[in-house]
Amino acid sequence: MSTADLQAIEGRSPVIEPFLSLKQVGKVYETPRGPFTVLEDISLEVGEGEFVCIIGHSGCGKSTLLNMVAGFTKPTSGEILLQSKKVTRPGPDRMVVFQNYSLLPWLTALGNVALAIRSVYPELSRSERHKIAMEHLELVGLADAAHKKPQRLSGGMRQRVSIARALSIRPQVLILDEPFGALDVLTREELQEELLHIWREHRVTVLMITHEIDEAIF
C-alpha cells in the first residue's frame, strides 16, 4: 500500500516543527513464498501536541506502522525520527496503550501504574510513586478502583487503567492501537470523549489507530 491508501487525519493544532517524522518508511516481510510488502514509502510528519488518527481497513498495515513507531519492529527501509533521534527499540518515551489493555493480572490498578512509574523514574520513593499513580487514576476517574485487580474491573475500566499507566510516565508520544476496539459503543464514546479531554489538558502528542471513521473524526 502507499501513502494514498493510508489517510492521516490531523487534529487541529499549531504545527511547530516535525516532532515525530516518518521518512519513506517501508516494511517487507520475508515469507516462504518470497518477500511480502506490507508498507511502502510512508512519510508522515507529526507536530508536538498533535492528535493524529491513522485509519484504514483491517490488514492494511496500520498496526505494522504503529509497531515500528513504538519500536517493536524495525522498518526494512526508511527511518523514524522522534525529536531528530532515530527510533531503534521500544521505550517509555513512546508509551503504548494496547488494544487488549495488557495489564498485569497479579497487580492492582495502582500497582500496574506504579510499576510503570518505577521503571521510568527509579529515583522516586514508594510514596511518591503511589501519589503520582493515584493522581493519574483520578484523572481517568478510577480513584475508587485503585486497589482492585484487573479481573474485577470491566473492559472500559481496564482500558482507563492502561491510559492512566501510559500518561503517568509522561511519554513524548502516546501510541494507541485500536484502544477502544473491544469495548461497547457507549463505553467507547465515553472514553473517546475523555481521551480528547486529557489531550486538550495535557497537550500530549497522540498517535491513534482505528478502523472506524467515526472514531477518527470524532
Binding site: A70, G71, R94
Partner: peptide, 9 residues
C-alpha cells in the same frame, strides 16, 4: 506482558 516489559525497559 513481554511488550509491556519492552516498552517500559
Amino acid at each position: 506482558y513481554r511488550n509491556v516489559a519492552r516498552v517500559l525497559r
